[in-house]
């Protein structure tokens, strides 16, 4: 190429800077630098002493030694069974109640179905429900209604709209407006519009979402007991408090088995429905 020929390459700039998502290269480096410093500072705040790490290694060894083999004696199996049944029952009841509560919230949070102010209230309810971890809800519920599965059910019920109402609202926003309009044109009331113009379009997806949420609630129901809200989590926390780590491992294995079983069941069921 006649690169050195000024007549041909003349007029072309000899430098080029890659466009960045930031406004300029300097801001880019500044942002990266700031992030780097922040992470370093976080790590510094946390710096573990060598003694702690060494102690940790010892503790880990003895923990592992006590954990194996996991305690699956008939007595232990009985306790796991009792706790697990309670967890699963909690997840089913909470899903049922949670879905019933979520449906009106989902309608409120669907932009195309309700007036603006209602929409904002709906979105806010979804956001709050989504932001609080099940365990935060559970610890508050325990304070309000006392230890036991009721607190767990309440926690899971409150957590349900954050997922279920959000996704159902998205389904509602995607519906074919023509069908709803047809019912309106026939002089249908708003409730009739929902029942005949909207519901038929979203029910198959909704059933899928219910199963999905139930799957999530199973996971949550196995841990809310750690703050006293019933289920297998209570058994797990007790085993830790009593240093029965072989029993803890058995419980955790049982939890993993149940969670995976729930996941497979939910995947199969959703595929059949949709």
């Amino acid at each position: 190429m006649g690169s050195a020929d000024p007549e041909r390459s003349g007029g072309y700039p000899s430098s080029w800077e890659r466009p960045t998502v930031f406004y300029s290269k300097n801001i880019k480096y500044l942002v990266y630098g700031a992030i780097g410093l922040f992470v370093l500072w976080s790590a510094w705040e946390l710096r573990p002493s060598p003694a702690r790490l060494i102690g940790g290694a010892d503790a880990a060894t003895s923990l592992l030694a006590t954990m194996f083999p996991p305690d699956f004696t008939p007595e232990a199996r009985g306790r796991i069974w009792t706790g697990m049944v309670e967890s699963i029952a909690m997840s089913i009841v909470a899903t049922a109640i949670g879905v019933v509560i979520s449906i009106p919230i989902a309608v409120m949070a669907a932009e195309n179905l309700v007036p603006r102010p209602v929409y904002y209230v709906g979105r806010a309810l979804v956001s709050i429900s989504r932001s609080l971890h099940e365990l935060v809800l559970a610890i508050v519920a325990v304070v309000a209604v006392g230890l036991g599965p009721l607190a767990g059910v309440i926690a899971l019920v409150i957590a349900t709209p954050g997922f279920f109402a959000k996704l159902l609202a998205e389904e509602l926003e995607d519906i074919d407006e023509g069908q709803a309009d047809a019912i309106r044109a026939l002089g249908g009331s708003p409730v009739q519009v929902l029942l005949y113009g909207v519901a038929p379009q979203v029910i198959p997806r909704m059933i899928g979402l219910i199963i999905y949420r139930w799957d999530i609630n199973i996971r949550a129901s196995t841990i809310v007991g750690i703050v006293g809200a019933g289920g297998i989590g209570v058994t797990l926390l007790n085993s830790f408090d009593r240093y029965e780590y072989d029993f803890s491992l058995a419980i955790i294995l049982a939890i993993i088995a149940v969670v995976m079983f729930g996941e497979i069941l939910s995947a199969v069921a959703r595929r059949r429905v949709q």
């Binding site: 702690r52 503790a59 955790i252």
Partner: peptide
């Protein structure tokens, strides 16, 4: 498959 709170229980025992 293991929830964060269960991992936390373990690491609190260790560290």
């Amino acid at each position: 498959s293991v929830n964060v709170i269960i991992w936390a229980l373990f690491f609190v025992v260790i560290f």
